[in-house]
Amino acid sequence: MIRVAAVGDVHMDADVLGRYRPALQELAEHADVLLLAGDLTRHGTPEEAACVAAEFGGLAVPVVAVLGNHDYHSDQQDAVAATVAQAGIRVLEGEGVVLECAGGRLGVAGVKGFGGGFGSHTASNFGEPQMKSFVRTTEQAADRLAAALSGLECDLRVALTHYAPVPETLTGEPVQIYPFLGSYLLGAAIDASPTALAVHGHAHAGSEQGTTPGGVPVRNVAHPVIGRAYRVYQLSSGAPVGQ
């Protein structure tokens, strides 16, 4: 059994320093790893990233993160990732990491992802350069996620994104903005490998629970959705859900 804690959209800055720390101090009692599902900061500055490092660094369990759209806002995403990494937090973008847990080897593949939408309301790689670039960005992110997941040699795979891979976890958000909240391409990438859990953030007004078309449980861990410092999901080794 492997216990995965997760939270997204913590939007750290100096005014939030210390809010999560009391709950994090007892994290090792509840979980083997903590996943941060993007939007670690408000404006994507190194100063805010230092707050992330102070709040989520030095914990008793490994911490794995992806960046979110807020972390790109100041065009300093590389500095944000580097600052967070200095605190021992592993930041993934189209890659994976395998963690040795008491219950087995946990593989985490992460990518920020991007938008595009779902079903018949999906953006197409057609028309203006800006629209084609938008869709290609998502296609490339999905391809990187699929490759990272399939390359993991582990007992259990978890997919970590900021954008949503399914529409169910967006329930509560205005349907008009679904194309800016996620893409079915991320769900297809997750379904391409046997995956036990997919975790994302970004949709503050969404719902916690969903499932990919292939049967992988999806959890929206945006902080306002879970309403706690983090959520914990208990996975059994040898029982990957998706295929």
């Binding site: 999560y20 009391p22 036990a196 859990l197 879970i226 309403g227 914990v232 208990q234 990957p240």
Partner: peptide, 14 residues
Amino acid sequence: VVCCDPPADPEVLS
């Protein structure tokens, strides 16, 4: 303001 308390029981998924 979003609560930052520890979670309740874990969700068992598999």
